[in-house]
Design a protein around this nucleic acid. Structure first.
Lengths: 172, 172
DNA sequence: GTCTATAATGGGATAGAC
DNA sequence: GTCTATCCCATTATAGAC
């Protein structure tokens, strides 16, 4: 069910995916869908929650690193792995304004992005990390672009990691 | 009118922007909007057409460059200028699945992206430019991210150009 | 050109039978 | 859990007066 919904979100966006479409793909009626989830937003947050555990584990691991550069490298690796392995999810999340609005109001999601942001945005050194962080996020989520759908995961993973390191001026 | 529509598209996405919202922002009724544009898609393509002339001029200029590297540099500069100066437009275009579907079916837009792609995707040298092209597009459109809204255009322009050059391994 | 009024459609959501 | 049937409402789109 969540898989079916996520595929449709990735293809049509959240706003243009009706409960009827989800029900049709599952071969049931709308009422059956409503039996599991009270609202459409609940479906969206449920699809997100299923993926959040993986991302939370990645941030957990990065937060215990020895220093900030190391933490960033660890986070980077895992975010890229995650994005490449689940490009449909990235497509569903990235950019869609309706989806972003719902996720921004979803506490577990916003809490996670705050933690990621803290790892990236350096206060002490006087460097403003907001711009490079935005670039980095953009490069990682680029794997969701339709034009890259044909590439194999291994190649894409390696290439994106190389470009991300180049962006951050760190050795891979 | 097109300005009002574009602002709403940038904030709520195309699918979640109703004609009523556009009419309200203009202080008129829906019927007045329909008098100018027969359908909602017509409004979208009209907002796009208004911006396409700028982008077409940029590609024209790049296509007459001496060599491919030079063409890329010219195109890069102008695309970044365009994106930074009109971040609301980038936000409206980037990612929104509904918007992308309409634009993909809009000939002037698809023709332009084909021309840009030809400049970037190198066949002769054996290098596959599809991945770096996707990275580049991602970095440029990153200026539309809400988190970068507070930065001044000049700073953003300079930074994005630097990161883009780093990505392509060319001197700025 | 802009208004009021009104169709026509589709979507979110619920009630109640099986 | 799934169905049929229904409600309510927002939206797209049009007709016709001013």
């Amino acid at each position: 069910m969540l898989t079916a919904a996520l595929e449709l979100f990735a293809e049509y966006g959240m706003a243009e995916t009706s409960l009827q479409m989800i029900a049709d793909r599952m071969g049931v009626t709308k009422a059956a869908v409503y039996h599991q989830f009270k609202t459409k937003e609940a479906i969206v947050t449920a699809t997100a929650d299923r993926e959040l555990v993986t991302l939370e584990a990645a941030v957990d691991q990065a937060e215990v690193a020895d220093n900030r550069d190391q933490a960033r490298r660890v986070l980077l690796r895992q975010l890229i792995d995650f994005a490449v392995d689940d490009r449909a999810l990235v497509r569903a999340w990235q950019g869609d304004p309706a989806m972003m609005r719902v996720l921004a109001n979803h506490k577990p999601f916003s809490a996670l992005t705050t933690r990621m942001y803290s790892l990236l945005v350096e206060q002490e050194s006087g460097i403003d990390w907001r711009i490079p962080a935005a670039m980095l996020a953009s490069v990682i989520t680029a794997v969701g672009q339709p034009g890259l759908a044909g590439f194999e995961a291994d190649l894409l993973r390696e290439q994106v990691y190389r470009y991300a390191c180049r962006l951050l001026n760190i050795s891979d």
